[in-house]
Design a protein around this nucleic acid. Structure first.
Lengths: 196, 196, 196, 196
DNA sequence: GATGAATGAGGCTTCATTCAT
DNA sequence: AATGAATGAAGCCTCATTCAT
């Protein structure tokens, strides 16, 4: 009886998995729906049974990866109140995830700014993800721990450094276990943010 | 006879200009060569006299924008030897350019990571642009002014913060004349890089 | 137990009803079997339990409507022998039906000539329906009441005027109770047919 | 130099000609754009260079045939003021055209009521064509020559009889030269319309 | 150099129909 | 009988590119 459910889930998931791989390796437009279906081992029609549009695959993929990332960030996380320590924990968690899920990370790096993703979807995902960062920054500023720079600028800078860090560790996964690089990565970020 | 030359230049430039606008607003693949030609006021055939391929337009556009940016960065610039001061000068120049050329900046933000640009072209442009930054970093480390972190990490972080800054000022051009935001933008960057 | 039988009948009828509405409003080809099933409140598979083919729905619909119309024409009808009076009775009955069943009438107007209906089905229905008209015409000519024109021409003209009349009253149902229009409609027809 | 113009015209015309034949023989939906292009001896792309849509072919075909018919009706026609005589002239001209252009006539018979033609196009064509008939009817009623029936009914009846007549002569072209059938056809029509 | 009609491969999507449950 | 996920053939249309003028 679980087989029915499983089958359905499997096909839709297989399509998402194949799409992820192909979108990252060949780009959105160079990837035909036929090739996605073929790679997923399903018929073309099946693809359109689960997704209304090629763009719909992209959107659902984007949202599901964002969600996975978000779930990873909040799981087993309890804030200590020590902002630097909490920030470090989150930073390292993000790097761990980037190293563990290089494809998803590359997808995110490639498509976060792309016109291939529906603007509404992108915005929704971004704000929902960045929400908790905004809060941490405000708190840090009030405690005089984070520099008193304009918040929007801090947020954008935070985002930019995060992208740089995961790009680095996605490109150099073997350095993911090098303590020197990992701590340097956080220090760079933290020195920028903290009040002098 | 100069009119002929001028006309030719005009048409090629008109095509590049139209392509820039369309690529940024609709994306590379959603922009047909026909629409570029129409927007430029030339026939489809004319477009293919000046560019061998649609991808060729992209490449030439990418390279010409990179070149313009590079020219802007080196013009009237003489390094003083004071690394922080030089870095600040360059940083502000980059922001000025981003504000003056929002379309080109957006193009750069959108396509720097995209599969739509020929890999070879992208790599070449990147290294040639980042070359002088690499040198500055090495110099700063030797002088003990820049933190002794792994250079690759420093470079990637530098790039990430630069992208964040221009994204911010491209999105908020009116803040380009606000001294507080401009100095904060550089301080964030510099605090990250400098030796503590 | 009667409920089961009833349910079955209901579903088949629901499919025919939905098909009628959709075929008339959107056309045969713009109507998908999925949309018929959905409108009827059944699953796609169910539709193919009752009808072997999409065309089969069309054929059965066409034949059932023809049959309904034929039943309407013969019910409570007894020919008096006075051909004009009989013709008038039949003519008014046809108009009554057209007004009472506008959807079915529109279906008939739209598909009587269409390539979307199986030729064999169409021909069979036509001749069976027109059969009694042929007889009336022959009888009228022999009695010198109907003009001595070629019979095929008379039949075709009769058909054309009939279609015009029901088109008019289907489009203007409120005039169905206007005695002037109803009698004028028959007079037009009758003046054409009768011997001068 | 005429060759260029001719070529262009030829291709578009060839597509319309092939479409006419295929739409009449196989129906609109059973005719693929590929088959039209093939029959016309052009590439698929060429078809879409001249027509924006498959439906656009239909519309342009419908309008051009309507126009041809209208041109035929007004050419060499001068109304004498004797309404019966004028009506007869027009009636015979219409039959002549139907016999000379059986394909176009069949197209008209098949698609005048079809959902395959854009409603706006159909309505526009119909009213523009029927305009001059409306005038004739009004004039005849004022002179007491045409029966004092509601005009809308007269118009619809006129249209219905016309369709019946051309259907008959399109199906039996050999009877087109039979004086008996031709005069009977008009008499049927005229007896219906004229005041008794 | 400039033009734009022509090309045809290929993409996205629809849909009638099947079949395992 | 009823369901609806799955199928894959086929259709419409787009578009980069060519070429004759």
């Amino acid at each position: 009886m679980s087989s029915k459910t499983t089958t359905t889930t499997d096909k839709k998931q297989a399509i998402l998995d194949s799409a992820l791989l192909l979108f990252v390796s060949k780009g959105f437009n160079a990837t035909s729906t036929a090739s996605i279906a073929k790679a997923a081992g399903v018929a073309t029609g099946t693809l359109f049974h689960h997704f209304s549009t090629k763009n719909d695959i992209m959107s659902q993929l984007f949202l599901s990866i964002k969600q996975e990332f978000a779930n990873n960030m909040v799981s087993n996380t309890q804030l200590s109140g020590d902002i630097e320590k909490d920030a470090n924990n989150l930073w390292q968690k993000a790097i761990d995830w980037a190293i563990a899920q290089p494809l998803k990370q590359l997808f995110f790096l490639q498509y976060s700014m792309s016109a291939d993703i529906d603007v509404a979807v992108r915005k929704q995902a971004m704000t929902s993800i960045l929400g908790f960062v905004v809060e941490l920054i405000e708190q840090g500023k009030q405690q005089g721990i984070i520099a008193n720079f304009p918040s929007e600028l801090l947020l954008e800078n935070c985002h930019g450094q995060y992208l740089a860090a995961i790009r680095f560790f996605t490109d150099n996964p073997q350095l993911g276990s090098d303590e020197q690089h990992r701590s340097a990565s956080f220090k760079l970020f933290w020195h920028a943010m903290k009040a002098q």
